[in-house]
Structure formats: structure tokens, C-alpha cells
């Protein structure tokens, strides 16, 4: 074979390999919504949806900045979240047909919440904690959607995120999901039904780890440092370690904190935790105790070594 024909062959082979790799990468990282039959047979119960809504902390991000706490939440969006990647803008998820989610189907909403995929088939940034919600029971998601549809419409348009250049390409989020999105429970064997309920509230709905667990260089949660505290996503200071290696409060004291916001010393929550307590105070005493019991059952972790 003459040398020029050989090099053409090698070049062709290389193109095929590159295309195959790209095709494989595309296939593995493509935005994948929920299966078309994922919600079949499920009927939403808005009353339970209100509990799921509170437990999942939806209002903390999706109400407008400075919104009133009284009355039904207006999910107009507009809060900004500064991060190492740029500034994320919470979108309007009110029932408005134009600005909000009023025209989305249940399946589109469930795919957004649990798979992080938009109705147009694009990846969402994981500032939206769909990696946690992915663990939620389908019935609870359908209930949540039924509740969302009862909330007031607001016509404020969603604003685009303001991200640094390397993070503007949503296609790369498929790779991120492949690496870090997992529906495996961090605590595989809960010691009691109460801890199991707490695990559901913390790992699937409450997404506590998003702030209380440190992240690796690519922004994935370090599951071996679960709830061991982390640098704040924006601004100075740290989010505290809430394993028993960092927090000495009793189960009752943690439950009380989630109800009233008072620490055992009658200091109060500050920062983002004030918003979180507006949600947890709406839960039942049993659910707050379940969260506290789950935290008490976590492996105690010391400060960063």
C-alpha cells in the first residue's frame, strides 16, 4: 500500500473513532426526561403537595426577593444566587401560562424536578437540586405538581443566568450528571422507620446536603463528607457541620431549632437557614423529629483534615 493511501486510511479510521466517541458521549450525556409512563395511574393530592412543597423548600428560592411570608406563596422568581460559576437567577415557576409553568404537562414538570431536563430538552444547572428530588416518590411529585397548580399566577418573566463563560454550555451538564447525579441513598440502611423517614426528608426533599456537604473541584457533593460542613457558596464564612462530630445538640433540640429557629442557647439561625426554618416550621413535629433522628444517626465527622 503506498504511504499516501495508508495515511488516508488512518485518517478515516481516526474520524470514525472520534465520531463514535462523540456519539457515545452524546448518547451518555443527552438530556433524558422521565419515561413517558412514569406518572401513569397517579392522581395528585394538593393537600399532601403542600407538605412536599414545604419539605422541599421550593419557596425559599422561587418566591420574589423580599416576598411576604403570609398567604399563598407567589413563585415569581427573581432571587439571585452568586456562586463560583457566576450568578444563577431563580425562574418564575408560578402557574402563569406565559411566564410560569401553567402550560407544562405533569410529565414535563416531573422531568424538570427529578431529571433536571426542561420541556425543550435542555439540561438544568444543578443549582436546582433535582439530584435530590430524583429520590422522591413519584406520588409525592405528582402531589407537589397538583399543589403548584393551585398557587397564584405571576407574569414576571424569568431572567437568564449570568454565568462565567466556561459554564454557559449546558451540554456539558450531561457529563456532570453522569459523574455526580445518583439516586443511591447516602445512608443505605436506616436503623429505624423514623430515621428512614428522616432520610427521605433530608436526602430526597430537603436537600440539606447542597449547603452542608462540601463539593469537589467539579462541584459534585463529597458523599464521604456528608453534612460535615462546607464553605459558604457565596460570601464569607462556613455552613456548619451538622453530624454529631460537629453538633452536640440533642434530637429534641434540633427538632426545636427546625420549629422555632432557636438554638439551645436561644441564639437563632442566621443566613439562608432563616429561609429554611420558614419551611421546616410548617412540618409536623414527627417529621422534624425524623430529620433530627436522621442527623443523629449519621457517621460523626470531624473538621476537614
Amino acid at each position: 500500500m503506498p504511504p499516501n493511501r495508508k495515511s488516508v486510511m488512518i485518517l478515516r479510521l481516526a474520524i470514525v473513532v472520534v465520531l463514535a466517541l462523540a456519539g457515545g458521549a452524546w448518547f451518555l450525556t443527552r438530556p433524558a426526561p422521565l419515561a413517558a409512563d412514569a406518572l401513569d395511574g397517579l392522581i395528585g393530592d394538593a393537600a399532601n403537595g403542600a407538605v412536599i412543597f414545604a419539605a422541599s423548600g421550593c419557596a425559599s428560592c422561587h418566591t420574589a426577593p423580599g416576598a411576604e411570608d403570609e398567604g399563598l406563596p407567589v413563585l415569581a422568581g427573581g432571587r439571585t444566587f452568586a456562586s463560583d460559576y457566576g450568578t444563577f437567577m431563580a425562574p418564575n415557576i408560578s402557574s402563569d401560562p406565559e411566564a410560569g409553568i401553567g402550560r407544562w404537562t405533569d410529565l414535563e414538570l416531573a422531568s424538570a424536578i427529578q431529571s433536571g431536563v426542561s420541556p425543550e430538552g435542555a439540561h438544568y444547572y444543578p443549582a436546582f437540586p433535582y439530584t435530590a428530588y430524583a429520590k422522591a416518590a413519584p406520588q409525592d411529585i405528582v402531589d407537589l405538581i397538583a399543589y403548584l397548580r393551585t398557587l397564584p399566577a405571576d407574569a414576571s418573566p424569568s431572567l437568564p443566568h449570568d454565568l462565567d463563560l466556561p459554564f454557559r454550555f449546558r451540554a456539558s451538564l450531561g457529563g456532570w450528571k453522569l459523574l455526580f447525579a445518583s439516586t443511591d441513598w447516602v445512608v443505605p440502611d436506616p436503623v429505624s422507620p423514623e430515621v428512614e423517614r428522616g432520610r427521605y426528608l433530608v436526602e430526597a426533599l430537603g436537600h440539606c446536603a447542597e449547603c452542608h456537604t462540601p463539593r469537589n473541584a467539579l462541584g459534585g457533593l463529597q458523599r464521604d463528607r456528608w453534612m460535615a460542613g462546607a464553605p459558604a457558596a457565596s460570601g464569607p464564612g462556613r455552613v456548619p457541620n451538622i453530624t454529631t462530630g460537629g453538633l452536640s445538640w440533642s434530637v429534641d433540640e434540633v427538632a426545636e431549632y427546625l420549629k422555632s429557629g432557636f438554638t439551645p442557647e436561644f441564639d437563632t439561625a442566621g443566613g439562608e437557614m432563616v429561609e429554611v426554618i420558614k419551611n421546616t416550621r410548617q412540618l409536623s413535629d414527627a417529621d422534624r423529629l425524623a430529620i433530627a433522628s436522621y442527623l443523629a444517626a449519621l457517621p460523626p465527622l470531624g473538621p476537614d483534615s
Binding site: 462556613r238 429557629g261 432557636f262 439561625a269 442566621g270 443566613g271 426554618i277
Partner: peptide
């Protein structure tokens, strides 16, 4: 009281 204390700590106290 928790709401009033927390509102001030949210906006006027630096995280630990």
C-alpha cells in the same frame, strides 16, 4: 420572637 430575631440575623449578621 424567633421570626424577629432570625430576620435580623439573616440580614445583619455575618455567617460564622
Amino acid at each position: 420572637m424567633g421570626g424577629a430575631c432570625g430576620a435580623c440575623h439573616q440580614n445583619y449578621r455575618v455567617r460564622q
